[in-house]
């Protein structure tokens, strides 16, 4: 990263797309993929997408610099955002800057976590955020660009440069982008953001420092109880950071699994309680050395098994994805929280 150019605008030689890609790479401003030139005009259009948003931001770790709306918009332009995406990017940034998210720890860790961004509310459809088939995958500009813009902000303003500040042993594909919407239309449950106390007509971003989705395949079970038994077995991992029971995790129910659970009268609260009680790691799967470490940290087994969530409420349930007998487990970094932030619509005018 260049620390020499600390002005808000920079005059650089005219260059073609290839030269621009090389320039950005040399500056350390990219995730490795080509970027869009953040010209003053493009940045002004991006900022117009968030007109009226004057709420200041906290300093971003590790560089401890306070971003300007203009520098944030530059990153959104570079990521390929449309101006209408920008308020979602800003809400996601505000979420990761909440202290309980533990941005510094999640950026400096050797774990492979990345900021998961889930969108609820009407903006999902207005922005064409994929909530259905292949929602964690490629092919949708909004999913790709919103998550990427957040990552570029953390890299460029925050200074979380891979292999310097970002010490992840492996990293993960989620570090390029990890953004999706809840499939509220196919969910038998109240939307996630409504269960968090927001109004259905509000758009809300929820962030958590997370691993990418771990698939939960169950084609055979025909009851909600059967599905949850399968899920619990997968979640009971002695090698996920959830083993410390310090933080949350998400269960993303595929619509078909969600329908089965709802048909069998499972509520979200009952799903949380079932997983809290049964997704536990048997003592036999935990090494003697790790048992000693967990005990020193005050984490003791109950009935010869370790719980992997602090409370049932730390198990977050949402519905996404398309057809198929699959759900997803999204383990967190551990020392983090799921933070929900309302997206500020742009002021009229």
């Amino acid at each position: 990263m260049s620390d020499t150019a600390e002005t808000e605008t920079l005059d650089i030689p005219e260059m073609d797309a290839d030269a621009w890609a090389d320039f950005v790479e040399a500056q350390g401003w990219t995730d490795g993929l080509p970027t869009v030139v953040p010209s003053e005009a493009a940045v002004a259009r991006m900022m117009d997408g968030a007109r009226g948003d004057n709420e200041p931001f906290a300093a971003i770790t590790p560089r401890q610099l306070i971003p300007t709306l203009q520098s944030l918009a530059a990153n959104a332009v570079m990521a390929g955002c449309r101006p209408a995406y920008f308020p979602v990017v800003l809400a996601a940034l505000r979420g990761v800057l909440v202290a309980d998210y533990n941005l510094h720890g999640s950026l400096a860790t050797t774990h492979s976590c990345a900021p998961m961004v889930m969108v609820n509310g009407p903006l999902r459809q207005a922005l064409n955020i994929n909530c259905g088939t292949n929602c964690f995958g490629q092919g949708w500009r909004a999913n790709a660009a919103i998550g990427r813009a957040l990552q570029l902000v953390l890299n460029n303003v925050g200074g979380a440069k891979p292999a310097i500040m970002d010490r992840s042993t492996f990293g993960s594909p989620a570090k390029y982008t990890f953004c999706f919407g809840e499939n509220e239309e196919e969910s038998p449950f109240a939307p996630y953001h409504v269960r968090q106390g927001f109004r259905a007509e509000e758009s809300v971003v929820t962030v958590m420092s997370a691993e990418p989705n771990h698939n939960l395949n169950d084609h055979g079970s025909t009851t909600g109880q059967g599905l949850l038994t399968t899920f619990a077995g997968a979640i009971a991992s002695p090698a996920a950071n959830t083993i410390y029971a310090k933080g949350p995790y998400f269960i993303i129910l595929g619509p078909e699994h969600a329908a089965t659970l709802a048909r069998d009268n499972w509520t979200v609260e009952q799903i949380q309680q079932f997983l809290y009680d049964t997704a536990c790691v048997p003592l036999s799967q935990v090494s003697v050395e790790n048992r000693r470490i967990y005990e020193e940290a005050g984490h003791f087994p109950e009935n010869d098994a370790y719980k992997v969530a602090p409370t049932p409420e730390d198990i977050h349930v949402a519905v996404a994805g398309g057809a198929g007998k699959h759900s997803a487990w999204i383990p967190s970094f551990g020392g983090t929280a799921a933070i929900s932030i309302r997206v500020k619509p742009p002021a009229a005018g």
Partner: peptide, 12 residues
């Protein structure tokens, strides 16, 4: 391995 992280933090 973590020396760069310490130095980056100290610099900030």
């Amino acid at each position: 391995t973590f020396r760069p992280l310490v130095m980056a933090q100290a610099k900030a």
